[in-house]
Nucleic acid binder design. Structure first.
Length: 191
DNA sequence: TATTGGATCGCC
DNA sequence: GCGATCCAATAG
């Protein structure tokens, strides 16, 4: 389980990275303990020809992390209430990222329940705002390296699964782009 | 300077 | 289906 991905893991097209992240493990360490969840749902946000991407109109103070080199965290506030967690992708200067939308809880489940204040395991990480709370991810983690910081990505095991491709969720622009990737049949996906 | 509209969630 | 609640991007 403690086999974290190498730097080269992030060095690939964003769409490919979004698919490759499926089945890997998101690991966070915190003073209250560690939590681990298997990534079961991702979305790609591209720099070009993608109006739904924050970086589409250029760099701002909010999205500047998206322009950093791949393998860093981009965390931002959505609807004034929830922080969403992204893996920065693409070369430095290219504003792309992969949104992590859902996890299957693996370790530290009691801690996740406490943070979320619910009991149903299927609802612990079944959405981008939920998993950020369950994993103890905070806005101050914006820009940290996902290989050396308190949030890491561990390599996937030899489990086989089918990848399902579909339109992204919760956006009003570019709804025709098929950039959402899920593990087919997984019980922990968002709705 | 004012208005608007989100990569959401939980409860009505 | 609706409100909570912040901030960046627009318009004026």
């Amino acid at each position: 389980m403690k086999k974290f991905v190498s730097k080269s893991f992030f060095d690939k097209p964003t769409k490919t990275l979004a698919k490759d992240l499926l089945g890997t493990y998101l690991y966070t360490e915190h003073k209250h303990g560690i939590t681990i969840g298997k990534i079961v749902e991702t979305e790609a946000y591209l720099f070009k020809n993608d109006p739904a991407c924050h970086a589409h109109k250029g760099k701002t103070k909010r999205n500047e992390m998206m322009f950093e080199e791949a393998g860093k965290a981009y965390i931002y506030l959505c609807y004034g209430m929830y922080h969403l967690f992204n893996v920065v992708s693409g070369k430095k200067g290219i504003g792309e990222a992969v949104l992590i939308r859902a996890l299957e809880p693996i370790e530290g489940i009691e801690l996740m329940k406490k943070r979320r204040n619910i009991k149903n395991i299927k609802q612990l990480c079944s959405g981008p705002g939920k998993l950020v709370l369950a994993m103890g991810i905070h806005a101050k983690h914006n820009g940290i390296c996902l290989r050396t910081g308190p949030i890491k990505i561990a390599a996937k095991k030899n489990s086989k699964f089918e990848i399902q491709v579909s339109p992204r969720i919760g956006i009003s622009q570019a709804q025709d782009l098929l950039l959402r990737f899920t593990i087919k049949g997984n019980k922990f996906l968002s709705k």
